[in-house]
């Protein structure tokens, strides 16, 4: 059942004939108000963080000791922190760090975990056994301890923070991809496709990828929320980025000391984290409903 070169060239035409599975899913997703609102909220937060230099002129490191713990004003829309630094600029630049670390970590872990999981699922046998035991060993290390080890050995910084989180996020992706590939490859519709003489390449394109993509997409959106939380927790306990680099987790821990007198310093980053996590979770739910033809209503 080796696929020949001819087949590859006809694949493009075949894909055009296939139903707009993704288009259809998008249509259902857009009908879900909660998912749409969540998407807008999350995208707004992302855009604001990316466009930070356009929104605020303040440098997030500029201190002003005579203007500490200030509430919102025209000059400082979100007030100032305990060192008199502008909260808005710290929030936006902090969000940049948090979101960048979370998303890069997820990107790495999806890529690495996906490749390992698919290989493990396809090959099976001893190779699969060895890979899965290594993954089990990695999964047994608590994320925070892993982050501590990585950052104290390789140094504090955005890069090492990302690697630590990426390593921690790999095991669930490997397991998800492996089980998905295994269950799809052993299903009767794959056997039917083989009986019809459909090439391996085409089986992967038209059966395996659409069936794997949906759980992976849903999992990514839920894991993104988890990664933001993880990033915040690591920042909160003080092993994230070295000061004065802002990051939502460390901002909460600074503000925590003055929570009673000046709650806005801790609560504003908390609110940002909360909005991100909740909107990503709702988006994940919406995606699940949209991508599964048996759940989505017509």
């Amino acid at each position: 059942m080796k696929h020949d070169v001819k087949e590859k060239s006809s694949d493009k035409a075949d894909l055009q004939l296939s139903p707009g599975l993704w288009k259809e899913s998008l249509r259902v997703l857009l009908k879900n108000p909660l998912a749409v609102i969540s998407f807008i909220v999350f995208i707004t937060i992302c855009v604001m963080c990316i466009a930070a230099p356009l929104i605020t002129d303040w440098d997030y490191t500029t201190m002003s000791m005579d203007r500490i713990h200030e509430g919102p004003s025209a000059e400082h829309p979100l007030g100032t922190d305990m060192l008199g630094r502008d909260m808005l600029s710290r929030m936006l630049y902090g969000g940049r760090a948090t979101l960048r670390i979370s998303f890069t970590a997820i990107f790495y872990s999806v890529f690495i975990g996906g490749v390992i999981g698919i290989v493990s699922g396809f090959i099976g046998g001893t190779v699969d056994m060895i890979i899965m035991r290594i993954i089990d060993a990695i999964a047994a290390i608590p994320t925070i301890i892993l982050a501590i080890v990585v950052e104290y050995t390789l140094g504090f910084g955005v890069g090492n923070f990302m690697y630590a989180m990426a390593i921690a996020l790999v095991p669930p992706f490997v397991r998800l991809l492996r089980t998905s590939v295994m269950s799809i490859m052993s299903s009767e519709y794959i056997e039917a496709a083989r009986a019809l003489g459909v090439s391996k390449f085409h089986i992967i394109v038209s059966h395996v990828i659409p069936n794997v993509a949906a759980p992976v997409l849903i999992y990514i959106s839920n894991t993104a929320a988890e990664a933001i939380l993880m990033c915040t927790i690591i920042g909160y306990i003080g092993i994230g980025l070295a000061p004065p680099e802002p990051e939502w987790g460390s901002m909460v821990s600074y503000g925590y000391n003055a929570l009673r007198a000046y709650p806005h310093i801790a609560l504003i980053p908390c609110l940002a984290v909360m909005l991100c996590v909740i909107s990503l979770n709702f988006l994940g739910n919406g995606l699940r409903d949209a991508l599964d033809p048996s759940i989505r209503d017509k």
């Binding site: 004939l17 009767e188 519709y189 056997e191 019809l196 038209s206 059966h207 659409p210 033809p293």
Partner: peptide, 29 residues
Amino acid sequence: MQIIFQNPSGSLDPRMRVFNIISEGIKAT
């Protein structure tokens, strides 16, 4: 040579429309 399976729901790809399920073999051959 073709085969008809025991489990009708398991032998049809849940993410494919009937049109594509049936035309899959035509495309392949």
